[in-house]
Design a protein around this nucleic acid. Structure first.
Length: 110
DNA sequence: CCGGTGACCGCAA
DNA sequence: ATTGCGGCCACCG
């Protein structure tokens, strides 16, 4: 009774998504982390992290995930700003996040 | 099988 | 400061 493609692979993918979303939820308000940092924790490349958030990021505080240099992906720019103002996230005059001040490392949880 | 693409990253001109 | 390029890894046609 085979129902289709390897469910183990399907399962692994699902677990991966879960771990990424979990990490995002750990990020404290007013702080941010980067795709690369998350990738380091879940053990994968940053592009995959971005891909996961693009597809399944809706339920989590996705605005707390930015690029390594603090700049925001095009999709974030629009909706994230209000959240930053609300949370008091340290911003630079350029509109990017002030990383030294706001970066939260999921590995050390600080 | 191969090439293109993506909410990326880091280094070199 | 900008731009370009390679590396990364999974997905899609």
């Amino acid at each position: 009774m085979v129902t289709g493609p390897d469910l183990s692979a399907e399962d692994a993918r699902e677990r991966y998504v879960e771990s990424v979303l979990t990490v995002v939820e750990q990020v404290p308000p007013g702080r941010v982390t980067s795709y690369g940092a998350i990738a380091g924790v879940v053990g994968s490349g940053p592009r995959r992290v971005g891909n996961v958030l693009a597809r399944h990021g809706a339920p989590v505080p996705w605005w707390r995930v930015v690029r390594a240099d603090g700049s925001l992906p095009p999709s974030h720019e629009e909706n994230a700003r209000p959240h930053y103002l609300d949370e008091g996230t340290p911003l630079r005059s350029t509109g990017a996040v002030d990383m030294p001040a706001a970066f939260w490392d999921p590995e050390t949880r600080e």
